[in-house]
Simulated scan of single mutants.
Amino acid sequence: MRILVVEDDDDLRFAVAAALRGATLAVDVAADLPAADQALRFTAYDCVVLDRMLPSGDAVAYVRRMRQQGRTIPVLFLTARDSVADRIEGLTAGGDDYLVKPFALAELLARVRTLCRRTATTHPPVVRCAGLEIDTARRTVHRDGILLTLTAKEFAVLEMLAARAGATAHRAELIRRCWDVPTEPTSNVVDVVVSQLRRKLGGPPLIHTVRGVGYRMQPSA
């Protein structure tokens, strides 16, 4: 899942992005509405975490325009404005959730995951394939009963492949969904992570190369 964090406070922007990345989410950041608008026009996000009061204006008006244009991406407002009237205004304008500062990063993460699930394709919370067990809620992976230690990027790629087991995941789509910053589709970052995954997963192999396209997860014949 890919998240856009829009926050003008440098320290808070860094902390929120770090917390989301630590939960295996791909994160892009922006400090104002013009930068956020540019990112949203060129990248598909699963959720936007949006500071309400930015130097470039009140984000409520921006979200209202988004909804009028038919853009349905989930939006979570972050704000110090905590009155009932403020919350109603944000939600009425098209916000999907409203979190008041200061807040716990764990709560923010839970709310972001909830918003992302509303638009994501439904798949089982535990995926099993040829001795492999991926618990997407607990973020754990076992093979033949043995707990595997994966990096955040390895888990993100494995989760995406497992969610569509038997179908091919294009390399460009893996990059778009699992990497934080724009990466050229021809880059070998996906190949490096898949190579690491294959080594950790052991045999028989589960991740297969679809030459010139990407990767597919399925048991070996």
Rank of each mutant, 00 (worst) to 15 (best):
V29M: 06
L197C: 03
E133L: 00
G94E: 06
C129W: 08
D86R: 07
G70P: 08
V63D: 07
G145R: 01
A120V: 11
R164T: 13
D144T: 00
F103M: 03
D191P: 07
E159K: 12
L132G: 05
T122E: 14
G202N: 04
G22H: 12
D96F: 02
V48L: 00
H142C: 02
L150Y: 14
L206T: 05
E173T: 07
D32L: 00
V5E: 03
E107F: 03
T79F: 12
G131M: 00
T183K: 09
G203H: 13
G145P: 02
A18F: 11
A120T: 10
A17G: 10
M1H: 13
S195N: 13
A61W: 08
H208V: 00
Y215H: 08
V193H: 11
A172N: 09
V213D: 09
F77C: 01
P102V: 06
A23Y: 11
A59D: 01
V29R: 10
V75G: 04
T119N: 06
W179Y: 14
P74F: 12
L50C: 05
D144V: 01
A59Q: 03
R143C: 01
Q68V: 04
A110L: 01
Q38N: 11
D46V: 02
T121A: 12
M1Q: 10
A39D: 06
A162G: 10
A80N: 10
A163I: 04
D37H: 14
R81K: 15
V84K: 15
D135Q: 11
A18E: 15
Q68F: 08
F155G: 07
G203I: 05
I175S: 13
A26Y: 10
Y215T: 03
M53G: 08
I207S: 07
